[in-house]
């Protein structure tokens, strides 16, 4: 085929890459972050509870997720989720889940393990006296958590949570193993169709690089700003 770096290929492919691929990547990142932070926070509360019946399973889950490669988890869930779904609702046939939903569930469950550890550190960073003050006022466990501990923990941990989200943003590219068209998947499709591997893969790398770098720059700014507030 033609020699030399062809910028026109990128220009022609860009609308497709962003409209199809990047939309998927960002939606997946956003939903998995939201779900992961919520589930992760619950896991963290379980790990910190004084009841072993809550703490042990949560600890086991987190350690399991953190010791298994993400690709494997994506694979497993893609094949297992239909059966787990059928088992939950009691259907005899595997539930049709679809690649997108399967990805959202997988990433939520996987990232929750990492968000859990961040939130655990965040909750532990709040002085014991704050909890005591809430209890002394008559607030129950959920009120103390929801109104006093978690708001402060989230604020302290925002930079770390966002940094983890940047990693999540990059990790979503692993969905290629179940042939889903995310940003990298879209780039790979064009690369193979037009035989423009160098152009497409360097462009994809550049987009990931710029996005991640600007996000971490924002995180750094945020961190400096929050240090002043406190």
């Amino acid at each position: 085929m033609s020699s030399g770096y062809d910028f026109e290929v990128i220009e022609r492919a860009a609308p497709y890459l962003f409209r199809e691929g990047m939309t998927f990547t960002l939606t997946l990142t956003g939903l998995a972050m939201l779900g992961g932070v919520i589930f992760g926070t619950l896991l963290a509360m379980m790990r910190l509870s004084r009841f072993p019946l809550l703490g042990l399973p949560a600890g086991l889950y987190v350690n399991l997720m953190r010791s298994v490669p993400l690709v494997l988890v994506i694979f497993w869930f893609y094949f297992l989720v239909p059966y787990i779904g059928a088992w939950i609702i009691g259907a005899s046939q595997p539930v049709q889940v679809g690649a997108f939903l399967s990805c959202v569930i997988t990433f939520t469950l996987f990232e929750a393990a990492y968000y859990c550890e961040i939130m655990r550190a965040g909750i532990q960073s709040i002085p014991r006296g704050q909890v005591a003050a809430g209890q002394a006022l008559g607030l129950n466990y959920w009120q103390t958590m929801g109104k006093i501990v978690l708001p402060q923990a989230f604020r302290n941990m925002t930079p770390v949570l966002l940094t983890q989200t940047i990693i999540l943003f990059q990790d979503t590219s692993l969905v290629y193993v179940i042939s889903v068209t995310d940003f990298l998947g879209a780039a790979a499709k064009i690369a193979n169709r037009d035989y423009r591997l160098v152009e497409m893969y360097t462009f994809a790398a550049a987009v990931y690089f710029v996005t991640s770098l600007s996000l971490s720059y924002i995180v750094k700014r945020l961190q400096a700003k929050m240090a002043i507030i406190r």
Partner: peptide, 28 residues
């Protein structure tokens, strides 16, 4: 919690809630 709500407590390190304004501390 119900009993504690009827007993006021003041701590050595104040333990005001730093993320809430003074009014919010008083009303929460």
């Amino acid at each position: 919690p119900k009993l504690r709500a009827r007993i006021g407590m003041v701590f050595q390190n104040f333990e005001l809630f730093p993320h809430l304004s003074v009014t919010e501390n008083l009303t929460l």
